[in-house]
Design a protein around this nucleic acid. Structure first.
Length: 245
DNA sequence: AACGTGTTCAACCGCGCTGTA
DNA sequence: GTACAGCGCGGTTGAACACGT
């Protein structure tokens, strides 16, 4: 276990403007990463975690400030339903937003609404709650796409292809895993996000396209030049489903 | 103005994962 | 196979701020 406070003289607490400038200049010169060296190079008396956090959550130029827009909130709700508290994954789908931002937003604004709505629904009816559980593991392990020698890309050429793969054990119920994921219990979403009604035509295409990409990434090794992080969404989804299965 | 309460969000902390020797 | 170091993530905390009385 690396020691977070090995150096007892390491500064903690709020960052000053001078520290921000030092960190910004250091990263402009040396680039991101190598966080253990950043504090030394920048002349900061901060631990690497603190430097990394400050940069990723606050100083990075691409960070978007201000209130979350309606479509961003829609997306957070949907992604949270899909991924749970995988804030970094959710944030990856929201350009300019950090995992911390998303997490804070959820915890301060959406969580209460969501739990209240859930309680209300529970007391109103006895309908069984369908827990949305990603089933990528099933899809992948027994999938035609993986067991087949045939490259997945040969089959998947369009969004429609995803809903019509060859019949296998994984599709014997006629339901594909992504279809399960896409089933939206919209009770809450529509209450919280009136825009959903208007954007019905927009989101399905987003999801199908998105899942198609994820399925491709899941089923294929990284292409040359493709970084691990580019696959993180799908691989993490895989891990997530394994944990929950 | 002073105080209490609620909200927001930057920052800290512990842990798990991954890469490497 | 194992120990270690580094990185990144999610949960939590607490200071700062907003608002109501």
């Amino acid at each position: 276990m690396e020691g977070y406070n090995v150096n007892l003289s390491v500064r903690k607490g709020a960052w000053t403007r001078e520290e921000d400038n030092l960190l910004r200049q250091c990263i402009e010169i040396h680039g991101e990463g190598k966080w253990n060296q950043v504090s030394y190079k920048a002349g900061l008396n901060r631990c690497r975690k603190s430097c990394r956090l400050r940069w990723l959550n606050y100083l990075k130029p691409s960070i978007k400030r201000g209130d979350f827009k309606e479509d961003e909130v829609d997306l957070i709700i949907r992604l949270h339903k899909l991924l749970g508290n995988r804030w970094s994954l959710i944030a990856q789908r929201l350009p300019g937003r950090t995992a911390n931002d998303v997490k804070n937003y959820w915890n301060t604004r959406l969580r209460m609404d969501y739990s209240l709505k859930k309680m209300k629904n529970k007391s109103q009816e006895t309908r069984k709650t369908n827990v949305i559980r990603p089933q990528a593991q099933k899809f992948i392990k027994s999938s035609y796409y993986l067991s087949s020698k045939e490259p997945i890309l040969d089959h998947i050429q369009s969004a429609e292809d995803l809903s019509t793969p060859p019949q296998t054990s994984s599709t014997k119920n006629g339901n594909d895993w992504w279809e399960t994921l896409l089933e939206v219990d919209d009770t809450f979403e529509r209450a919280a996000c009136p825009s959903l009604e208007l954007e019905e035509e927009v989101f399905p295409s987003f999801w199908v396209d998105d899942m198609r990409l994820s399925a491709r990434s899941c089923a294929n090794f990284p292409e040359e030049g493709q970084s691990r992080s580019e696959l993180s969404f799908s691989t993490d989804l895989w891990n997530h489903s394994k944990k929950n299965s």
